[in-house]
Design a protein around this nucleic acid. Sequence first.
DNA 1: CTGAAAGCGCTTACAG
DNA 2: CTGAAAGCGCTTACAG
Lengths: 354, 354
Amino acid sequence: MLNGPPSQAGPGGPCVAQKVKLSTIAETLGLSTATVSLALRDSPLVADATRERVKEKAVELGYIYNRRAASLRTSRSGIVGVVVHDIMNPFYAEILRAIETELDRSRQTFILSNHYDSVDKQRNFIETLLQLGGDGVIMSPAIDTPVADIKLAEDNGMPAILIARQVPELDVPTFRGDDSYGIALATNHLISLGHRVIAMIGGTDQTSTGRDRYQGYVNALLKAGIEVDPGLRIPGPRTKQGGFEAAVNFLSMPQKPTAAVCWNDLVAIGLMNGVSRAGLVAGRDISVTGYDDLEEAAIATPALTTVWNGQAEVGRSAARALLDKLNGSSEANGLHLIKPEMRIRQSTAPLKKD
Amino acid sequence: MLNGPPSQAGPGGPCVAQKVKLSTIAETLGLSTATVSLALRDSPLVADATRERVKEKAVELGYIYNRRAASLRTSRSGIVGVVVHDIMNPFYAEILRAIETELDRSRQTFILSNHYDSVDKQRNFIETLLQLGGDGVIMSPAIDTPVADIKLAEDNGMPAILIARQVPELDVPTFRGDDSYGIALATNHLISLGHRVIAMIGGTDQTSTGRDRYQGYVNALLKAGIEVDPGLRIPGPRTKQGGFEAAVNFLSMPQKPTAAVCWNDLVAIGLMNGVSRAGLVAGRDISVTGYDDLEEAAIATPALTTVWNGQAEVGRSAARALLDKLNGSSEANGLHLIKPEMRIRQSTAPLKKD
DNA sequence: CTGAAAGCGCTTACAG
DNA sequence: CTGAAAGCGCTTACAG
């Protein structure tokens, strides 16, 4: 009992039988927990030699910092929540990638969730995040998100940043593309190629994005003196499947559209696949534009003419705005529109006169 | 000071100036925190009437449960970590969707991360998860994951479940498809269509999956008495881009392959896009098989012949295995192989005799 | 430069 | 059925 080997130094290095905590290190080294705590966080208050001793011992003992305990004390958790419609959608995935890169740099952990446009699922996520003491939340709000749900976060000290979509009457920082302008770019491009009967495929009026994009299409037509025919609109899911299924409908329209403005790249690719089952090739028999300029757009066949929508920029800006807010500044309130740009590839071509 | 209105009951309902905690509810109601705590968690120890009063007051005050405090006490956090190569890859996204569904049911929060095959990023994630007191981790291990990194989790009471990939000499529950068997299905399918010069596109030997798939392809050829030509293999990224770029290489092979077994659906779709730029159509001029049966495979053009790889099943089983472990049972150790199945569509066709 | 002590907001025995 | 008290593992003033 008296001179046996110290039980800590078992064979095999950092073998954690009893949980190692700050106080374990403190006792082993004959220091106070205060000093150990400061040393581990590189406080200049601690002597260099002491800091080294502490850090070495921490590694040796396999110490694991308990962030729950720390954040209970400091009320900063290092957790940021991100909730979007569906991370499987490459549009959001590209945004997330940029957010991840930015948050990693600040050593924030991020918690991800889909809401699939369920307001309940979204509120649930916000509540969980609050319970975990989340520092902030970046969200692409679900359709019909009540202002109260965002306020819930903000009132409890968890700032919110909005991406891709907007909630009316809310002054939180919001980053998204200028949809109305962007879709007009695509529509104008088709008009300049001689097209006059242009369908609009995909999307709904339930989101601000959906309304803006339809409006942009309508405006561009009107400006060119082309009559707007609501029958040329096929609303629907914003997915490849949605575009694929719209193809039959598109091809059987009595107005015989020669071009399609699609809600996004996914719909456009699906539509191109669909019409090609009928032997038609985009860029030859019909013209198709996408929206977003996903990484995939350039390697689609034919390569997709589309509108760059700045996913990476949206993600990066949103993350930075949040980090800024966490550090006390808050200049970023309000709407930040990113200017879309045309990307002309092979899926559009001049109208052939019969 | 004496008979002003109580400061809690400000106008506008649950307006949280001071942070509302358990003790706030307790004081307001003249109860102890113990009783309030039990009431909120539906303990049968508490009288029904008391429970109702507590719950109503909690809502009224806008109380937010502090999970950090609770988990500091109970050492269960309700957090599960999930780390995969890249959530933007639909293969993983489909697995994640199943995991999410399963964990939601048990009210576990999940934290997601990509490791992009960086062992450091992966270890970092595991450490963060430990610091947050994660209950468990589901991972598709990065290439060359050291056993020690998994042990780090397990030794600190955080069980690990492996998906899609394996770490040698590790007995943790592992769920994946039977790659060697599955790729043989695809190869045999092409052989039965008369193909003899069959290329293998994409993948590397650095993952167990990569080795298994190449081996399955080799085995199928040998069994059919076809000589294996290593020159017919084009290793590469497992992405659409990778398949797209392999097309040139594939078309210029001196052996003139008539078919391609692709590492996965993404590579296959990329390859089909690539060869179609040269005017060749899969299912007519060449035959192409994919692997995974992503949702996208069925709507590709041409619809992709592929191998169902059970993503949803992998995700569901992994999540259940983890939940079981957290509840004390641990029968699921070791490897669980899911049997792949052939899905024949339009991208493969009988060899045309010239 | 280091230590003693209080406290973050819960839950858990233990009493009654 | 309810309450008083200790403790989870940190950090933060405050002393020295």
